[in-house]
Design a protein around this nucleic acid. Structure first.
Lengths: 150, 150
DNA sequence: TTGGCTGCAAAACGTTTGCATGTCT
DNA sequence: AGACATGCAAACGTTTTGCAGCCAA
């Protein structure tokens, strides 16, 4: 973790940027947080530590991390975008449209088929997004009417 | 086509809605159009036929069609959402990040794996979105350096 | 006549940007 | 000192909403 922060810091300074207190805090809290933060959520967290940070800086920092490849933008269609660390293995998302819970999965078979489809269309893929929407196990509409329940 | 429009009309009226001139025009033009329209594009098209229609009505109509299941919202991360008919076979998208071209594909294998993944997670899928981003054949970065070409 | 539907304009929302100021080197 | 970074608030583009009038049933 410290190592990661140092690496990012170096990459920023070596391309003409500067080390700043606020940005360091934003980056650290971003990588220590659970996944899928909105800018507003991250701003709130950061402001607990440093009341002076405004959301513009958080936007600018996340955009920077995204451009550097350390963060990834997600859009679950909620209005606001979400961001997550781009360091973990690639994964896709299961989004429950009832409770909003997002879980993750990996499926190499899907990845492979995507590569194949792309190739078949003369397309050079750089990235993809797959989200499956539906009901998680807790929210699944009551399964049947056994015993004409309720 | 006429049949589809009549069906939608019926569904609207039978749930307390009314037939209105403007909405009918919007719906017809929407289904006759090429895929992936933004609200602004559709509004422009509709206004050629009926100068009085405002984009608020287009927003309201597309939202209605979406809720009824006849249209589908897409988000390719351009800022504005796009809409397409939800009547055709299911397909996914290849988005060229250079020229913006969007093409479509179907891959039953991917669909099946998605079902399986969902089941494995106790998830009841209702829908999914898959977009592969990259370069289309026209925009692909020059392929190689054969003969140290310029 | 009633209630839905409309256009318009204003509001709301997430995001970006201009600018004067602050901070790092 | 100089350049980059920041907060604030204004600007932006998209979408939603309040409202008075309109139109279909």
């Amino acid at each position: 973790m410290e190592q990661l922060l140092r690496r990012i810091d170096e990459e920023i300074t070596s391309s003409g940027g500067k080390r700043s207190r606020g940005r360091g805090q934003i980056i650290e809290i971003f990588f220590r947080s659970r996944r899928h933060l909105t800018v507003e959520e991250l701003t709130r967290k950061v402001r607990v530590k440093n009341r002076n940070i405004g959301s513009a800086t958080v936007y600018r920092t996340l955009k920077l991390l995204t451009k550097m490849g350390y963060a990834k933008e997600l859009d679950f269609g909620e209005g606001a975008k979400r961001y997550e660390s781009n360091l973990t293995e690639h994964h896709d998302h299961l989004v429950c449209t009832a409770c909003g819970k997002v879980s993750e999965f990996e499926e190499p078979g899907i990845e492979n088929l995507q590569e194949e489809v792309a190739r078949r269309h003369g397309f050079s893929p750089t990235m993809h997004r797959l989200a499956i929407y539906g009901y998680c196990s807790r929210c699944a509409p009551s399964v049947d009417t056994v015993k004409s329940g309720s």
